[in-house]
Amino acid sequence: MERVPILKIGGVLLVSIQIDLQDQSVLALQEDLAEKISSTGAHGVVIDISAVEIVDSFIGRMFATIASISRLFDADTVVVGMRPAVAITLVELGLTLGGVRTALDLERGMKILGQLGRGRDA
């Protein structure tokens, strides 16, 4: 099973998914992220899925789960780079990702986290 690497950039954890995710990798990523947020005290998580060709209900549910876990550690989650075909399919599938924040690309995702982070410190 392949593991998805997690990078730390300042106070943000970056997860860039470059592989065809199997369910075990999804579960492992959730665990690794919980571990990493707690150990680094990161204030945000960016999940870059611009290379992901399909998101089924299992992967889609992961985004919501990661967002919920992050929230417990007072961190925000942004999913960036979802492809149009993937978005259309998710809507048809009936999955809305419930409250997970999204952005067009990595740069905008980081900007959103920056704004949210400032709001928290104030």
């Binding site: 399909i54 089924d56 209900s57 075909a85 259309i88 599938l93």
Partner: peptide, 17 residues
Amino acid sequence: SLVDQTKLVTAASELAR
């Protein structure tokens, strides 16, 4: 079409699981 490919592959993923 790309959208139809994605829909079919996603359905296959759900059903295979």
